[in-house]
């Protein structure tokens, strides 16, 4: 078993092991296995940010990033269409649809501005660099609220969560932690973006350990905004899909051709 700064890697290839051990010189011991296990809670929730701040990692990550961005924008658009149709069918209230309609363009803009993390370099302008992320943070807060609101309005229920009451309680508990961690994290990060120093209470060690308050908030935020949504989205993907039909009006040349056919008198039969 090899522990590399939080990544747990199990493999039986000694060559790869020695290469990684040389490149990732942290504590490790090896147990033969052919699986590669990544421990999300130890690496992704503690040291993710600076991994795409420097060359060549930044350039390569920026090449993959558009797929994530476009999918997230597509999700927001598809969700908006779903809510609009749900409103017209009477499944959600006018109040909910109006809130969604107002927030939708804001979410689209803030989500697309997240790309600024690759434009404004962390080592040249930390404030501008982090500002792009704050926008995404706001978008994710709005998405969490609107999704819970939607579940509440449409009376969706999952047997997995114990029916209607269980689904509602689960949604509200999730929203409580997601919003709570987001608000605290937003407050802490906004200090840096606005040019203030990071709040001192965010750097207080927790329980005498090596982690500080800000890191604990980050971990909780990542859990509720980047890990659980993946699972929630998978579970909710069983809901009824949108059925989209695309049609095309006949172009002028096709209409003229049709008219010319219609003008031809039917052949007389002698």
């Amino acid at each position: 078993m090899m522990y590399v700064d939080g990544i747990k890697i199990c493999m039986d290839n000694r060559g790869v092991q020695s290469f990684l051990a040389a490149k990732l010189p942290l504590r490790y011991d090896i147990i033969p296995s052919v699986t590669l296990t990544v421990c999300f809670f130890s690496i992704f929730l503690t040291k993710i940010c600076s991994n795409w701040d420097y060359s060549p990692s930044r350039e390569i990550t920026a090449m993959i990033y558009p797929i994530f961005e476009y999918l997230l924008l597509a999700y927001l658009l598809a969700d908006f269409v779903t809510v609009t149709i749900a409103y017209h069918k009477g499944w959600v209230s006018y109040r909910f649809w109006r809130i969604f309609r107002c927030l939708f363009p804001i979410m689209i803009v803030l989500c697309s501005w997240f790309r600024m993390i690759f434009v404004i370099l962390a080592y040249q302008n930390v404030r501008g660099h982090t500002a792009g992320f704050l926008g995404l943070q706001l978008t994710l807060m709005m998405v969490a609220c609107l999704n819970v609101f939607y579940i509440s309005e449409t009376k969706i229920q999952y047997a997995l969560l114990g029916g209607r009451a269980g689904t509602l309680w689960s949604a509200y508990i999730y929203l409580f932690f997601a919003l709570g961690s987001s608000v605290i994290k937003f407050y802490l990060d906004a200090h840096v973006v606005l040019g203030f120093s990071y709040p001192s209470w965010g750097l207080v060690k927790v329980g005498g350990g090596s982690m500080v308050v800000g890191q604990v908030v980050d971990m909780i935020w990542m859990l509720f905004n980047a890990v659980l949504p993946l699972i929630i989205a998978y579970v909710r993907s069983s809901e009824q899909p949108l059925e989209i039909t695309i049609d095309l009006q006949a172009p002028s040349y096709a209409l003229q051709f049709q008219e010319s056919i219609d003008d031809v008198p039917p052949a007389s039969t002698a």
Partner: peptide, 28 residues
Amino acid sequence: KFKVQPETIRFYAYLFFWAMAIIAILIT
């Protein structure tokens, strides 16, 4: 005619986010 489930799109969005993170960490 086609069918689209918004939550499935979100699932793939998060999947690519984590793929992006894994690649960034490995390269770093």
